[in-house]
């Protein structure tokens, strides 16, 4: 607490050098670590009070691990986390209990994250019991249900009596019960139909205004993240490769991966930008053995373009580029960031 005091009003959450490895062990009796899944690799970012930070990336990029690390549901291998200016990375379980009411989570699968044997009233009311908050119980729960768009009369119903969208509303009400400051939303709308997605996204936005919530919003769907976030961090293979304000990121992506991701999103009929879709070659590499240097270099069209006939430039192959400010409030980890309006060329070779 003495070394770096964070002004509490500015950042709600700040992480520095956050790393999580899941070891792979081998050995007959004494297990030794032979490799590790580098789920999250030395990432740093901060979430301002009242904003929505979007975390976007493909499978295996470490976005869900990051969410769990933030709430200390799993212990980081290295790195520090501050919450309201207080370093919580070293907190024990009992120390965290105090903070649990301040930070909540909404999960992807509304079918799996609700106990089928509890009524809505019990599910939404559970946080009050656990945190021994005084309340008129039922009345408070019904207010919450009403607020998230559930019929308060359905207090005694079970999750299976609700549709997918309504179940996600139950999840939101549960997260909201203790008036947290931070809600981490892990793919909250991915399992829902399009028309229902929009309902939940709107609900989340309204609640943010009403309760001054701060969101970390995780999704693989760039359209959804783009819509709801103030700022977006793009992740690739456990690293953050770009962070910028949402509109800026869309208009002016600096990292070739971001550009490719944006171009891969189906734009719909009304798309007038006429941008060609950049189809990346190959799959995302395994996080057990990520490529050296910049993890994106084997698939990077820009690197191939810069290197020309000599192949990928050496710094891309050997050294991870620092996450530097390329434009004001726009950071990217790339040796050869894109210029504004620069078009990526389709990589000709695999």
């Amino acid at each position: 607490m003495t070394d770096i005091a964070q002004p509490a009003d500015d950042y709600l959450v700040k992480v520095e050098g956050l790393t999580k490895n899941f070891p792979i062990t081998k050995g007959i009796i004494f297990q030794r670590e032979v490799a590790a899944v580098h789920a999250v690799d030395n990432i740093s970012f901060e979430v301002k009070s009242g904003e929505t930070l979007g975390l976007v990336g493909e499978s295996g990029c470490g976005k869900s691990t990051t969410a769990r690390l933030l709430l200390k549901l799993i212990e980081p291998s290295a790195g520090k986390i501050w919450f309201e200016g207080e370093e919580i990375s070293g907190f024990s379980r009992s120390q965290m209990r105090r903070l649990r009411s301040e930070m909540q989570m909404i999960f992807q699968d509304p079918y799996a994250s609700l106990n089928p044997r509890q009524t809505v009233g019990q599910i939404v009311g559970a946080p009050f019991k656990i945190h021994k908050t005084e309340g008129e119980g039922k009345k408070k729960v019904q207010e919450l249900m009403d607020r998230v768009g559930l019929n308060p009369e359905h207090y005694n119903r079970y999750p299976h009596e609700f549709s997918g969208g309504q179940r996600q509303r139950i999840g939101v009400a549960r997260a909201l019960a203790l008036r947290p400051k931070l809600i981490v939303c892990d793919e909250p709308v991915s399992a829902l139909d399009v028309s229902i997605q929009a309902q939940i996204l709107n609900l989340l936005e309204d609640l943010q205004d009403e309760f001054k919530l701060t969101y970390v919003f995780i999704s693989h769907d760039l359209r959804v993240v783009q819509h709801i976030s103030d700022r977006i961090a793009v992740m690739y293979l456990g690293r953050i490769v770009e962070v910028a304000e949402a509109t800026e990121l869309y208009k002016n992506p600096k990292h070739p991966y971001t550009a490719a991701l944006l171009s891969a999103v189906p734009k719909g009929h009304s798309d007038s930008s006429g941008s060609e879709r950049i189809v990346l070659e190959g799959d995302v590499p395994s996080p057990i053995d990520p490529p050296p240097g910049c993890p994106f270099h084997p698939r990077c069209p820009k690197a191939h373009q810069v290197g020309g006939p000599d192949g990928v430039p050496e710094n891309c192959r050997t050294e991870f580029p620092p996450l530097d400010e390329v434009d004001p409030d726009h950071i990217a980890a790339c040796w050869y960031p894109l210029e504004q309006g620069e078009k990526l060329q389709q990589a000709a070779h695999a």
Binding site: A198, Q199, N202, Q226, V265
Partner: peptide, 13 residues
């Protein structure tokens, strides 16, 4: 559907 280029407009579910 949220559109990447229509930031700011509210979704109409």
């Amino acid at each position: 559907i949220p559109h990447v280029d229509h930031k700011g407009s509210k979704l109409v579910p």
